[in-house]
Amino acid sequence: MKSHIGPAIRLTVVMLVLLAVIYPLVVAGIAKLAPGGGKGETVTVNGKVVGYKLIGQKFTEDRYFNSRPSAVEYNAAGSAGSNKGPSNPDYLKSVQARIDTFLVHNPGVQKDAIPAELVTASGSGLDPDLSPAGAKIQIARIARVRSLSAERLNQLVDDHTEGPLLGLFGPAKVNVLALNVALDQLK
């Protein structure tokens, strides 16, 4: 035991320098070349930072494409899901309430056309995306509020839809912040 204490201390110090000092500094140094310089990429409108490209935002107003419900109200100072179990009666009541609210704000939409992501909270509470269906079901409402044609909005959603990775892997998605920035610029 004793003969191992010396090497244990010395090896620990060496490894701390290598792993906890040199390694993260090298990563931070190379990451300066990455988009955003390793600080996170921001989205700017008229010279003002309105958000981070990857972090979702709370959009609840009728004139915007609404984002998903969030357990942390999209405040990225923290992050969390609701952690509600599938059979929790209170949880199911809140889902029902979200469905009712959605139907009030989007009259004419058939209930079974509402995709689940619009009435369920994401894992991070910061989900930046919607599925294309989740965006398109909101078009009628936005067209009415903004007096725009549904065709133009449809085109806008299509333009902002990112297909699967390399066209092969994973789901398609729409970044809600980018979509709403573009929406504000439509004339």
Binding site: P86, S87, L92, P115, A116, T120, D129, L130
Partner: peptide, 26 residues
């Protein structure tokens, strides 16, 4: 297959169960 309790509420779960999940992964 989605959450059967949510299916009872009458909405669609075309991508599956979404509570606690991120759209970009599915």
């Amino acid at each position: 297959g989605g959450n059967p309790a949510i299916a009872h509420l009458g909405i669609g779960q075309p991508t599956g169960a979404m509570e606690g999940k991120e759209v970009r992964f599915g």
